[in-house]
Nucleic acid binder design. Structure first.
Lengths: 228, 228
DNA sequence: CAAAGTTCTTAGAAAGGCCTTAAAAGTAGC
DNA sequence: GCTACTTTTAAGGCCTTTCTAAGAACTTTG
């Protein structure tokens, strides 16, 4: 349901950089190292876009592109080429790539081209955002903002808030929370959950966020997006 | 993508903008000008989502929302409010809106929220509301409201009122109540139940709620949604 | 009308649940 | 291995809720 971007890149450093950058923008990213892997992955994954390095071990990018084009004619393909590699660039376009980007490039430019391709392709990858009232959680980037203001949350805090927001305006039992957020099936007997609720409330308040976490006595908690 | 979005907006310019934007994204859009039209349209249309301006001629958005909620409890409702209209925002959420968006907004944000609501509406089970007369109990959120006004009930009070409302207009025996609400199979010999009935009556009265709990002498109690 | 039986109300004791804080234990990065 | 950050434990205090008890008020019946 959420269509990711499939990244084909054999250099781990480069791949990690791209992946992180894209995820911070809210995209889901799947990363494979070779053309063969990419083709196998495509059998089951339905990516919104393919980002393809030309220089790959084994089957090279142009060949991957050609095979992709045959089976998935609608899938947008963005090729990453070396600056002066005119020959491969031409081969790539001829093989059906939709756009190319010469390395080295500014990340912003990559983004712009990706967005352009996606707009054109009409096949939008769904950003994985959790919106409710003034709060926005980006589940890919794992960032939270209240209106414009960023919230800095620890991993646990983030997971907890995400879970509450996913069940917005419903009372969630402590046990349910322990199970889903901590993965336990029991109450610790300590006030662990209460402590985290307390942390979240403080941070929400410090950010001036007009939403709150209501206590549902005897049951658990409930996320409410506005003051009542 | 068969089910359209029903847009309720009395300003033609705004409506045209929204409609065009949404249609470019591939949504079907039905547009009506007033709340009355919207309710009529809902009888035959089965929209996936309702986008509702608060400020409407005739019946205002909040009222529309309440009526929609009663007949179509599962239909996601997104409200458009003025930036500083906190009061209507709160009223709207209380009337059952699922999200709100303060004007002016970026179109992108509207899109994101629509997508979020549609995703959620697929996942979340239906909201379980007990409506009878002016009282509304939300069994998921465990909140109670009398008309606009929130009632703050303790867990026992909530359970008791819920049980009475589930058997509205019928006499319920003390024993039945003890069994279902307290889980005992016997009368304490104390006036425990009477005490709680007394608490409830006071809170209903303080909220100006035109409904009451009748005593059925020798048997138990009966919930009546309005004076008769 | 008086007595008996119910129901209502109030107040206070006891218990329980929740919040907060501080400090210890655990993790990750330099 | 040291430092900074995150997670967890522990403990005290506060506030809410629940329950009991006892007398007032009301209804029914003789």
């Amino acid at each position: 349901m959420a269509n990711p971007i499939l990244l084909v890149e054999d250099e781990p450093v480069m791949a990690a950089l791209l992946r992180q950058g894209l995820e911070e923008e809210g995209y889901l990213v799947e990363w494979v190292l070779t053309g063969e892997e990419a083709l196998a992955r495509l059998e089951h994954l339905e990516p919104a876009l393919l980002v393809l390095d030309v220089r790959l071990p084994g089957m090279d990018g142009v060949e991957v592109c050609r095979q992709v084009r045959q089976r998935w004619p609608d899938l947008p393909v963005l090729m990453l080429t070396a600056l002066d590699d005119v020959e491969n660039r031409v081969r790539g376009l001829r093989a059906g790539a939709d756009d190319y980007l010469p390395k080295p490039f500014a990340f912003e430019e990559l983004l712009a081209r990706i967005e352009a391709l996606l707009r054109r392709s009409k096949r939008q990858p769904t950003r994985h955002l959790l919106l409710d009232g003034p709060l926005t959680l980006d589940l890919n980037a794992r960032t939270a903002t209240c209106g414009e203001r960023p919230l800095s949350l620890t991993p646990r805090e983030f997971d907890l808030l995400a879970y509450l927001m996913q069940h917005s305006r419903r009372a969630i039992s402590r046990l349910q929370i322990y199970r889903e957020v901590w993965g336990h099936d029991f109450d610790h007997g300590t006030s662990l959950l209460e402590v985290y609720i307390s942390y979240l409330r403080r941070k929400l308040q410090e950010a001036g966020c007009p939403c709150y976490i209501a206590t549902v006595r005897g049951v658990g908690y409930r996320y409410e997006p506005a003051e009542g």
